[in-house]
Simulated assay, not measured.
Amino acid sequence: MNAEGLVEVVLPGKVEPEGLRIRLGAVPRPGPGEVVIRTEATGVSFAEQQMRRGRYYDQPPFPFVPGYDLVGTVLATGEGVEPGLAGARVAALVKVGGWASHVRVEAADVVPVPEGVAPAEAETLVVNGVTAWQMLHRKARVRAGHTVVVHGANGGVGSVLVQLARAAGAHVIGTASARHHDALRAQGVVPVDYRAGDLAARIRALAPGGVDAVFDHVGGSGITGSWRLLAPGGTLVSYGSAATRDAEGSKQWPVLKLLFRVLLWNALPNRRRAYFYNVWAGRALSRDRFRSRLRGDLTQVFAALQRGEVTARIAARLPLTRAADALRLAESGTVAGKVVLIP
């Protein structure tokens, strides 16, 4: 196993993408209850963009290997792991460590990838897919006939949200820059240019009675506008703070402010609800329950892919050794879908 050699990308500190480093080493060996995955695809998400700025609210100390999720083949199994798992294609949500040719994870954390689903396609739907599924079905409980707003409808999570919402029978209003509007219309989405001024007023014109759900990754001061778009009984799901990506100061403060707003709104005597979504919520309290929910929800997303309800939106495929180019491309805001790294 060690003859293969390990290749991983290291984030040494607060650097521009070109400051990423490539490190070589020995392939790790699995410990008890662990597997080693030979990575076939990993991706660039908003989390890594924040991490390189030191802005992700619970990132580890520098230096570390970024990479929120991955898809690959089990190369080796540790003591106590079913030996038959070796050779299986699996997905894993790891938060950090995914930008590597080989990754060691707990066997209980891997999710089988269905036969016939290519690694890069599956990778686009790991963190993005489970995030979209859980926000749509576990938090907002969107049903046929609902009207929802998806901010960043062309992005990694947003593009999956749009498709899952349409598959659920919802009407979708999607915010995006004008160059993505034709693609959104082709999916049955009503596009709104977020750069054209008074975004909330233009959305209210499309849904005068309010909407049933808003999915907001932007955060910042604009979150209040999202809350005001809700109809009675509506749900706001906040899942990021893209507006403060380049801000200085505490990396926890933007998230804490969002949490405070959510608590305040939910304490008011009204029929609307707000959530701050975190894919890792509940893991510390019950790891088994967290794993079961993750496995079940990601399996549902992969099934939606196989049924054609969701398509894998791959913005670009680049070698792992070109992680700097991939990160720069993902941060450019010019692509639709997810930038995928292929070790």
Rank of each mutant, 00 (worst) to 15 (best):
A118D: 13
V130S: 10
Q50V: 03
V142A: 10
G296N: 09
D182F: 10
A132N: 13
L199W: 01
V65H: 05
A92W: 02
A144I: 04
K95E: 14
G282C: 08
Q49K: 13
G33R: 02
V130I: 15
Y277Q: 12
P63S: 11
L199P: 02
A168W: 08
E82H: 05
N266A: 08
D216I: 07
G209C: 09
D58S: 15
G72V: 07
V340R: 08
A274S: 15
G333W: 04
Y56C: 04
G25N: 11
V96M: 04
V7D: 08
G116D: 13
R313T: 06
V335I: 00
F276D: 04
H171G: 14
V130W: 04
A140I: 04
G296R: 13
D297E: 12
G152W: 09
L11P: 03
T334Y: 07
T77Q: 00
A122K: 02
G209Y: 12
D288I: 00
V162R: 06
G209F: 10
G296P: 04
V218M: 12
T73L: 06
R185S: 13
P30E: 07
A144C: 01
G156H: 05
A213M: 04
Y277A: 12
A303C: 00
V150Q: 01
L327Q: 15
R104D: 00
H181L: 13
S250V: 08
A304V: 00
Q59A: 15
W227N: 00
Q187F: 11
T299W: 02
I37G: 03
V339Y: 10
R291Y: 00
T175M: 11
R143D: 12
A200S: 11
D216T: 12
R287W: 01
R228T: 09
A91G: 14
A247Y: 04
A196W: 02
P208C: 10
L11V: 03
P208A: 10
L230N: 08
R55D: 06
S226H: 05
V162M: 10
R228K: 14
Q59H: 01
G220H: 03
G5E: 09
Q59G: 13
S238R: 06
D212Y: 08
R245F: 09
V9G: 00
S159W: 09
G19M: 08
E121T: 03
S292L: 11
G240E: 01
V74W: 04
R143H: 13
V113T: 09
Y57W: 14
A122G: 14
A100C: 01
V27M: 01
G188W: 10
A132T: 12
A140Y: 06
H151W: 13
A140L: 05
D193V: 12
V9F: 02
V27N: 07
V310I: 14
M1K: 01
A91H: 11
Y239P: 00
L164S: 11
V237E: 09
V10N: 02
R141N: 12
T175A: 11
E48P: 03
R245W: 02
L93I: 11
S250G: 05
A207L: 08
A183N: 11
